[in-house]
Amino acid sequence: MIDVQNVSLIMGKSFLVKEVSLMIRAGEFVVIMGPNGAGKSTLLKMMSGTMLPTTGNIFFKGEKLSGYKTEVLARHRAVVSQHYHISFPLSVREMVMMGRYPYFKNHPLAMDEVIVDEQMDKMEISHLQDRNYHTLSGGEAQKVHMSRVLAQIGDTSVTQQKLLLLDEPVSHLDIKYQHQLLQEAKLLCHKQVAVAAVLHDVNLALKYADKIFFMKGGHIIRTLSKNEHITAQILKEVFDINAAIFDMPDGQGKFVSYY
């Protein structure tokens, strides 16, 4: 679905992303990991189309990403960003409805209202829908943005090839909702949506990712597929930490702890 070909981004004299190539297929869940300043967010922004690579090309559904019109792209990919600064008070419902803006002209249709209700249900924020966004906690706000972006992906009962980009989407969530959010994203993959998420928790990545890209200094230095096992050596190399790897109690995969 999205094909990143030898892409670099230079800001001033330094490379933020250097010669990165990767491909994400429809229905695939990939996670991008790496230390702070590795270029993860920059890579995600280039995949979203908001930042143009200095060199290299990105193809989305076979066509150049930079050739897409803003409004067309909005119906094919959605983004959860790392930070939000909301300038005016809006209700939670109004905020989630913005996810439907690419689909209606002036007034939301009945279907838009239904989708907004559904997505708020999924993130369990329906009871907050009349609350002023500015009074929410960090975690609640994150759920609101996820609902909004899920609404932008749209009707999830039908199969559709769309791209969902998540930049640290669970940073403020408690453990239950970290899993719930990623579970929702994973469900979308069954409907041919491709997901790329930046995460910091190796265990979350191991549980949900079909493929993990490890970035450092603007490069992808390691790629880990579903059938490969994480090793302490990889984690040492990427994060410069000592890790111990254990089997999950149910035998389904591995988990990591640090010392």
Partner: peptide, 11 residues
């Protein structure tokens, strides 16, 4: 309200 980048994401 979301910021310019987010507005572009929304089309």
């Amino acid at each position: 309200v979301l910021g310019e980048e987010e507005a572009r994401y929304a089309g």
